[in-house]
Amino acid sequence: MAVEGGKTLSELYQSSRRLLLKARDGLERIEHLQFSSSALTGDSSELSIAVRRDISHIQTLCSDMDALWRSISTKPQRDLWKRKVEQISEEAESFRESLDRSFQRQQKRMQEVQERAELLGRVNGESSHVLRIFDDEAQAMQSARNSSRMLEEATATGTAILAKYSEQRDRLKGAQRKALDVLNTLGLSGSVLRVIERRNRVDQRIKYAGMILTFVVVIAFLRWTR
């Protein structure tokens, strides 16, 4: 089986499965933290960053696996791996959407707390501390989203490059086949030309021999008639 970056398709698939399990566990912990007081400690944002990193890694692995399963020669195996890779990619996308929804819930919750604190006029003491914690967490979550977006763009760019390389490889193969056809045609044409040249030489010899024979016959006839 083809190898990409020193790993086989099967090894890349196993790595992606392990990352999916890790990401699923991280999402469950984030949901638990959002409904508990510990969500104010910043653990939720740290988990979100880690989960987004795992999801981006899974998407990169899917891009590598997508390039590998296309090189499998047998169609049944190729179709099987195509379904496996598509399943991994769909699960990763589902996790990313869940994480986005979790982020939106967290933002809404922080906004409600801020509005409540402003209404109560508690700009000092505990409310100020809470607001500062939520501001820090909001910045961390936003940073995580920006990092994830950059990773997704890099993954999309890598996938486009691999597709371009595959397209160029197909074009080179087609050009090679055409070149071989031309060479074969030239080889046949060369053989035909050599046959024609030999035939011309034979024809010339026959022509000259005929001319000499005619000349001899005419001379002999003239002498005989005298």
Rank of each mutant, 00 (worst) to 15 (best):
S10G: 15
E11C: 11
L12I: 13
Q14H: 14
Q14N: 15
Q14P: 14
R18S: 12
A23S: 15
A23C: 09
E31D: 04
H32F: 08
H32E: 04
S37W: 08
S37A: 04
A50I: 12
A50C: 12
A50K: 03
H57K: 09
H57T: 05
H57R: 01
K75E: 05
L80S: 08
K84G: 06
Q87Y: 09
S94N: 09
R96Q: 14
R96K: 08
E97H: 12
L99R: 09
F103D: 02
R105S: 06
Q106Y: 03
Q106H: 12
R109V: 06
R109L: 14
V113G: 01
Q114P: 01
E115P: 04
E118K: 11
E118P: 03
L120D: 05
S128D: 09
V130A: 01
L131F: 00
R132E: 02
F134W: 00
E137S: 04
A138I: 02
A138L: 09
A144S: 14
N146M: 13
R149P: 01
R149H: 13
M150W: 10
E152V: 15
E153I: 13
G158K: 13
G158F: 00
A163P: 00
Y165M: 08
Y165H: 08
E167Q: 08
K173Y: 13
G174R: 14
K178D: 04
A179S: 09
A179Y: 11
A179G: 03
A179N: 13
L180W: 07
V182Y: 02
L186R: 07
S189K: 09
S189A: 07
G190E: 09
I196K: 04
R198C: 11
R201K: 12
V202G: 13
D203C: 15
D203K: 04
D203R: 11
R205Q: 06
I206Y: 08
M211K: 10
V218F: 07
V218R: 13
A220R: 12
A220K: 15
R223G: 15
